[in-house]
Design a protein around this nucleic acid. Structure first.
Lengths: 131, 131
DNA sequence: CTTGACCTTACCCTCACTGGAAGGTCTATA
DNA sequence: TATAGACCTTCCAGTGAGGGTAAGGTCAAG
């Protein structure tokens, strides 16, 4: 059993974030006699689980679902796989979007003289005068 | 001169967004006698400029800067180019992050049976039992 | 004269936190 | 015992970029 500072060190999550996870009912620690939060090893596992899933790009609600599957010894791995597969698709879409964005911007920047004169194809494009 | 509905159609921006841009002092239209917003062609140009820059991934503050350069006939194209170049670098970083994320998730999903049994390497990874 | 489309402001909601203020508690040292 | 400083608590407000909804004013058509 440890208080929030140690929990923060162990999980690499800011204390603010840990309190927030309690507020939204993700991880609810015990309280010591003085009112301090008191985290068990189980709580720490859950916080680490959250830290990892969040850094993999799962939303809080997805994390909540994954956490409930994590807690459920009878879960079907198919359920978890489906969530992961969806997420891969989502990431693919984002990468595609960003790549197209990059191409457009790069073209604009490459075609811009970049001198002290006002003539600028980037601005022209944004203004729509060349589109 | 037109009211906000027509401006919305012409610029493909929701009216909410157009009002928001006025609130943050990006585009300030005239007002008709009845209190309705009244957009000039100049306003429409600016809104379109914003629509394009936002969809290219510029933040509102970057848009504000670009817009001021757009309005400034004596701007140096180097200023605009620098902003665009920074943005390309930023997009590159995001793509890289997403790709690494995708690799991790894909590996996890591929190694998961996806059946009705509880055994699941995705959950194991998130739990840190294999890390 | 009424209906419905359009417009106005004003307020709270989102997501996932982050920052700060005001105050209580704990531990070490003088 | 006093006190300094590190830690903890709750509460309030803000971020970015809008979205939702309500209550009400205005306008054009039938």
């Amino acid at each position: 059993m440890m208080n929030i500072g140690q929990a923060s060190e162990k999980t690499q999550l800011p204390t603010k974030t840990i309190r927030y996870y309690e507020e939204i009912l993700l991880v609810s620690p015990a309280r010591a006699a003085n009112g301090y939060r008191d985290y068990s090893e189980q709580d720490i596992h859950q916080l680490r689980f959250l830290q990892r899933s969040r850094s993999l790009g799962f939303t809080i609600e997805e994390c909540r679902l994954l956490l409930s599957l994590y807690e459920d010894d009878h879960r079907a791995s198919a359920d978890v796989k489906a969530i992961a597969r969806d997420k891969v698709g989502e990431i693919d879409r984002k990468i595609k979007e960003l790549k197209s964005l990059r191409t457009t911007l790069k073209n604009l920047a490459d075609n811009c003289h970049g001198d002290d004169k006002p003539n600028c194809p980037i601005i022209d494009e944004l203004a729509g005068t060349k589109a």
